[in-house]
Amino acid sequence: MLEIKNLTKVYEGNVQALDNVSFNVQPGEFLAVIGLSGSGKSTLLRCINRLVEPTNGEVIWDGVDITKAGPDELRRIRRQIGMIFQHFNLVERSKVLTNVLAGRLGYTNPAMSLVNRFSKNDVDMAYKQLERVGITDQANKRADELSGGQQQRVSIARAMMQNPKIILADEPVASLDPVLAHSIMQYLEKINKEDGVTIICSLHFLDLVHRYANRAIALNAGVLMFDGAPKEIDDVKFKEIYGKEAERVG
């Protein structure tokens, strides 16, 4: 359902972040994106919801080319694509509940949300999402009072508020310790399995890829190097993706 065709992104100063990348994502898939830092993983994810404007190529979703959508259309598309970040990107001074409710902004009337008013439905939904990630008791705390793992759970709840069809996770566990990393990945897995949400997740550790993803794609310097099942990544493929000097860890 999500089709990426010849996606190219050249940043200012002729930095080629993505070079003619094409692949498809099936509904309900858990797709891992791997590659070195700076290989274009973040840019790829951000081109999908156009946080970064692609230079060339198409992102077709449900028959609509996202790259050509006008502002209103884009707003309607974006609200169905949740996003999770490495550094959580919560508004630290706001309450946890407000952070979660912010996921609903694409749906609410702009005029009403400007004065911080959400419908009762939205508030109930926010509590439900917080309950799902197990931090209902933290709802009225400020976001920066929470630990890293808890903050990432808040951002999952925020993404889920969008009723997303896809979740883009940009290295969601890179700034967490291994135990927390697994717990966050399990939440994503649960969302993927129970709600049927497609997940595109960039990851650093191959063991996480093996354990959670159905499929993996690999980028090296903006070029798609690999597209297949995680277990197909053997030592040869690994050297191709990460370079000759690389050693496997974990």
Binding site: L51, R76, I77, R78, I81, G82, L90, V91, R158
Partner: peptide, 11 residues
Amino acid sequence: GPLEAIHATGA
């Protein structure tokens, strides 16, 4: 970061 995140929700 938060700007990006809020923007991504369709706000």
